[in-house]
Design a protein around this nucleic acid. Sequence first.
DNA 1: GGGTCCGACTCAGAAAATTCTAC
DNA 2: GGTAGAATTTTCTGAGTCGGACC
Length: 560
Amino acid sequence: WEEERYPEGIKWKFLEHKGPVFAPPYEPLPENVKFYYDGKVMKLSTKAEEVATFFAKMLDHEYTTKEIFRKNFFKDWRKEMTSEEKSTITNLSKCDFTHMSQYFKAQTEARKQMSKEEKQKIKEENERLLKEYGYCVMDNHKERIANFKIEPPGLFRGRGNHPKMGMLKRRIMPEDIIINCSKDSKIPAPPPGHKWKEVRHDNKVTWLVSWTENIQGSIKYIMLNPSSRIKGEKDWQKYETARRLKKCVDKIRNQYREDWKSKEMKVRQRAVALYFIDKLALRAGNEKEEGETADTVGCCSLRVEHIKLHPELDGQEYVVEFDFLGKDSIRYYNKVPVEKRVFKNLQLFMENKQPEDDLFDRLNTSILNKHLQDLMEGLTAKVFRTYNASITLQQQLKELTNPDDNIPAKILSYNRANRAVAILCNHQRAPPKTFEKSMMNLQSKIDAKKEQLADARRELKSAKADAKVRRDEKSKKTVESKKKAVQRIEEQLMKLEVQATDREENKQIALGTSKLNYLDPRISVAWCKKWGIPIEKIYNKTQREKFAWAIDMAEEDYEF
DNA sequence: GGGTCCGACTCAGAAAATTCTAC
DNA sequence: GGTAGAATTTTCTGAGTCGGACC
């Protein structure tokens, strides 16, 4: 896709697609599946029943125990009820969804137990749908669409302490849909009896379909897959910007260190914030509308209550203790020794403030980004995350890769380098539900292997003793083969232990996000080439598709 | 200049689906 | 070679970033 460059802002010349796939219509429950109110069977109207099934399907989920979720759900559910239902059903706690829930569980079970043929049939139907709606033509290429299926109705599941959790996400109809395609393309037809909200031909944007969602009033889009030209080029650009930052980062660092001394409060705050963004890879931190979303922050929106200052802590001077909820309500907790000037500035910023006051009261992301723009064209706060992530990977790979290691050990080193980045970016996950169990399984495998090794060693020893006495060819051979066996088992044991280490270290860390969004793939490709690691060991099929440009481009001497 | 709002895009972890592995 | 359960991949959609219009 280096073929042609478009003038500023033009994203394509030709765009043709089939429009979205709508969620399947609601299928009413069979007569024998009952809903109970206050212990009595109650037949619900179709609309009320549909919304009730959304709740029933989530009955085992922690969400349905949360006060806000229940309140929001009940309020929206009542809106769907007939006036009769509304007057009867006044208390959610008196609603009994268990029968409905059991029915859905049985359905799931039945789906699992389906015969091969039935499963095959479903698979083929999905493939047909994908083939028809999953691709579009953008300019001269057939491209995969990322999310061609419209989100089905359901209950809103916000992350963390979201004030809107449990609200009803309504069904999207063709009348909600804006289609974007080129004038000279075959315009997708709305489902029979329906009309699109609008058909437009805007080649300054990349989306094919959009609609407005009813919970936050925000716009949702259907766009192309990461493997597409338009996404790939943008991704490449992102890393090129980060590489440009590499060239001037020293200058920028000197600059903000100078600014710590500025007479102007705004400049000092800007400089300290930038230091955090650079050193700790914090997000920019836009302001958010209070009460509309979970209370989370980034750098510029940090509040006094989110940091603690320790002149001395555990033998270190000037320690800042961060404790706040970031994106997706993931907790950021870190104790960081900082330079004295930063520490003194923070003390100054916190003077005469309440815990809920902004730490950087003279700063926001727009001021910060404007300043960054002056330092380097295209520089914004998030570029620091990309830059620091990628440079860390490159450094760690250099440091951790041992040329004499075998392939599994080298891959462990790669994972460790990747992990260093994930820790820097605070990419966490809930420990897998089966973590303890799978760890124990692995441990028992290791124990078994150790026993096996001990046995093998004993056998080797006795074979050696035997050989000493007999001094014939045959017993010598036996010693050799026993030696090999010991070696083989040692290797297997090592591999298992490596696996255990890797898994344990990864318990609460998510590697995927950094791999997919922050690490210049050319670093990984070059590393694979340099050490003769098959690229499949690092990137799976999807990832190889997304990073096709890098796999194509990077040689073993690539430097970020 | 700076604040607010909105649109378009990237990035995020959970959950579902699929594949792999050990018995 | 069939199957259960573990591991990995894919899907899903919510949650950020950031720029530009408007005042």
